[in-house]
Structure formats: structure tokens, C-alpha cells
């Protein structure tokens, strides 16, 4: 089965979110301050985004239900970290918008067909 365009969009958005979090983590690294919680927050979000990107590929690990849950979890984590001030407010909003866009991609019927296809 050929991956639909929506799957590529999901991979692109997930990878973009992950790279964005890694870049933000690198820029915010200040050893002289207590930057570890901030860096850890971005690292958590990066891990979640890369996991989402991987879940759209041919050897995906999750069903559609599970991927939707993890995407909502990512959005919730970004919201919580923004409210708690662990990540920058504009960065947090951007990350939330990317997670919402991935939810929109997941709601396309071809994404569900692709993710719930019979696997070996």
C-alpha cells in the first residue's frame, strides 16, 4: 500500500515540530542558570513529535486511535508547559498549532485507512 499524501504531511509536521523543539532547546541552553527544566521540557516535546512523525511511516508502531491520543497528549503537554512558564509563550503557541495541525491531518479519512491497514 502506497502512503497517502496525508501521511507525508503528518511526517513533515511531526519532524518539523521535533526539529523546532531541538533548536529551541539548543538556543535556550545556558549552563550558568537553572536551565535544565526548560531544556528537559523541550526535549520531552521533541521526543513526542519525533514519535508522532515515526508513527506515520511504513513501519509505524501505533494504530490511528493511539496516534490521535499521543497527539492530543503532546498538545496538552505543550499547553501545560506554556502555562507553567517552562517554555516560551510564542514557542508554546507554535508547538500547540503544529500539534493541532497533526490532529487535522489525522482526521483525513486516508490517514485512518493508512494507519489502520493490516500489518505483518
Amino acid at each position: 500500500m502506497t502512503p497517502p499524501r496525508s501521511a507525508w504531511a503528518g511526517v513533515a509536521l511531526g519532524a518539523f515540530g521535533g526539529i523546532l523543539c531541538i533548536v529551541a532547546m539548543a538556543f535556550l541552553f545556558k549552563p550558568e542558570t537553572d536551565a535544565v527544566p526548560d531544556i528537559g521540557s523541550y526535549m520531552l516535546l521533541a521526543a513526542l513529535f519525533f514519535a508522532i512523525a515515526g508513527a506515520f511511516t511504513a513501519n509505524n508502531q501505533w494504530s490511528w486511535d493511539m496516534l490521535l491520543f499521543v497527539t492530543f497528549l503532546t498538545a496538552a503537554v505543550s499547553m501545560v508547559l506554556t502555562i507553567m512558564g517552562a517554555i516560551d509563550i510564542y514557542g508554546g503557541i507554535l508547538i500547540f498549532v503544529i500539534a493541532a495541525a497533526i490532529v487535522a491531518v489525522l482526521l483525513i479519512p486516508s490517514s485512518k485507512t493508512w494507519l489502520d491497514r493490516p500489518k505483518l
Binding site: 486511535d65 492530543f72 496538552a76 507553567m84
Partner: peptide
């Protein structure tokens, strides 16, 4: 109603974070 469930989840997490912060 998975989208509604997800929105409830996000708002619940935001509410708890608001209480803590």
C-alpha cells in the same frame, strides 16, 4: 467522540496547570 475527548483532556491539563502555577 475522540476530538471532543482530546479537547477535554487538554482543558483538564490546562486547569490543573493553572491551579498549580
Amino acid at each position: 467522540h475522540k476530538v471532543f475527548a482530546g479537547i477535554s483532556m487538554i482543558l483538564f491539563a490546562s486547569g490543573v496547570a493553572t491551579v498549580v502555577t
